[in-house]
């Protein structure tokens, strides 16, 4: 257990005037582990991601992250330039709606190749080769490489977004409802894909979802959110099989058996 935490969040708070987005949220994330954040709408789970990714400015708290070069930085206090640079190379975000995470007016291959070009890749053949490789990994037929994402189904768009976000081999990924809005069979395929990728790449991931089945499949640990606060946390199977907090018990018992 001498391994270092990758991300340490303490006291993360976001207030919107009188309303609380999230309150005093704290957790650690280790390399290669998946943390699930569950809760219903308005629980604050997405607010956490927005604060960490810089989309929103947190009211209070810290989020120390260990960069690839070993330097420790506070994501909440980084200058925007540094944060955007980090976002290009060290961590990635998968949005709930794939259209928000893709460039809809460029081809699938260009979508996957862009992060490489942004980091200085200058060989067309190699860039295209890597793009094709990734399309294969996310099970998108290779002959779609020159098609526009608008011609893809929702599930395929989401897989394309995943390829685009992982192509630079980030060490940490944030996912916001990665299976939201997808058909059940499509969800299963996507989850299996994510499971494999997370394991193969040794990714650390924070997955925000309202779907407990997703967390059981993907997450090692779980945070249960309600009203902006963490009400329970622990090993995924333990929180889902032996929930302690009244709200967690309610959440777990409300899930219809398949």
């Amino acid at each position: 257990m001498s391994e270092r935490t990758l991300l340490a969040v303490r006291g993360l708070t976001k207030r919107y005037g009188e309303r609380t987005g999230c309150l005093d949220v704290g957790f650690d994330l280790w390399p290669g582990e998946v943390l699930g954040v569950v809760g219903e709408s308005g629980s604050g789970k997405t607010t956490i991601l927005h604060c960490l990714s810089g989309r929103t400015v947190a009211t209070a708290g810290s989020a120390t992250f260990v960069q690839r070069d070993g330097k420790v930085v506070d994501l909440l206090r980084m200058p925007e330039a540094a944060r955007r640079r980090l976002a290009r190379a060290d961590w990635a975000m998968v949005q709930q709606n794939p259209r928000d995470g893709l460039r809809m007016s460029v081809t699938a291959g260009a979508n996957v190749g862009e992060p490489l070009m942004a980091l200085g890749a200058r060989h067309y053949g190699k860039i295209r080769g890597q793009a094709l490789d990734w399309l294969g990994q996310v099970e998108i037929p290779l002959d779609r490489v020159d098609d526009l994402p608008a011609t893809f189904s929702g599930g395929m768009q989401q897989r394309l977004q995943i390829a685009r976000s992982l192509v630079t081999r980030p060490r940490m990924v944030f996912m916001d409802e990665p299976t939201g809005g997808l058909d059940v069979s499509v969800q299963a395929r996507l989850l299996d894909l994510l499971r494999g990728l997370v394991a193969d790449l040794g990714l650390a991931a924070i997955i925000v979802t309202h779907d407990l089945a997703v967390t059981r499949l993907l997450a090692h640990r779980l945070l249960v959110m309600r009203g902006g606060e963490i009400v329970e946390s622990g090993l995924t199977d333990q929180v889902l099989d032996d929930p302690q907090h009244p709200y967690t018990q309610l959440l777990v018992s409300s899930v219809l058996p398949p």
Binding site: G234, L235, D237, Q238, D241, D242, Q244
Partner: peptide, 9 residues
């Protein structure tokens, strides 16, 4: 058994 596995608290 489940408690010994860490599955139950």
């Amino acid at each position: 058994l489940r408690a010994a596995y860490g599955n139950y608290r």
